[in-house]
Amino acid sequence: MGLVKAGSKGTLGTAPTGAAAPEDWTALLEHADAGHRRHAAQALGDRPDAAATLAARLPREPDPAVREALLTALVRIGSPEAAAGLAPMLASEDAGLRNGALESLQQMPVDAVEPQMDALAGSDDSDLRIFAVLLAARLGPAERSARLHQALERDPHVNVGLTAAEAVAELGDPAALPALEAFAARFPDDPCVAYTVDAARRRFRGAS
């Protein structure tokens, strides 16, 4: 025994062929077997018109590997429709789905995600506004600055402002300093705000 010639006895599996006609993949997304659902999700990642179908399956999908395949397929499609299908998952009570949706949106092209930004940034839910800030950090410079500075200067929830403060500090753009100072002035008694803004100031000094 010990090392044997791998594959010499035909022990490794063979890739399934002719698994399903394209129109059958959608039906296979609902199959009882998780392996079939995962393969269907992988296959549908090649079809931009499947974005809504993939997104609709996500909240009902119990298997983590299939869920990951659904999310990856949506990232692969990377269209505004795919982003629109994912955005509602940011409000899910399921932390795994919520984080998966956020990571996936962060990996999508900016053009696909941008149409979702206004609704997220204007939400009554501060958690969604935090997600909007995290997504804004990936936008083009002008759009990004406008959204991050607005969160610093106006958002009523301190955690949204803190997320924006960390984002501008990471980006290292000294033009954000007035917005940061405005944020510090709005929450003068919060030590976390003072610390974060001070850290950003020091970073900008190092960068300039």
């Binding site: 090392l3 490794l12 890739a15 992988q42």
Partner: peptide, 23 residues
């Protein structure tokens, strides 16, 4: 030693190619 390794051409992001690797 050479004969103990099974070499193959695989693109690891292609499900059709990776699917034969099981277990």
């Amino acid at each position: 030693l050479r004969e103990s390794v099974d070499f193959s051409l695989v693109n690891i992001v292609d499900p059709a190619q990776v699917r034969r690797f099981t277990g």
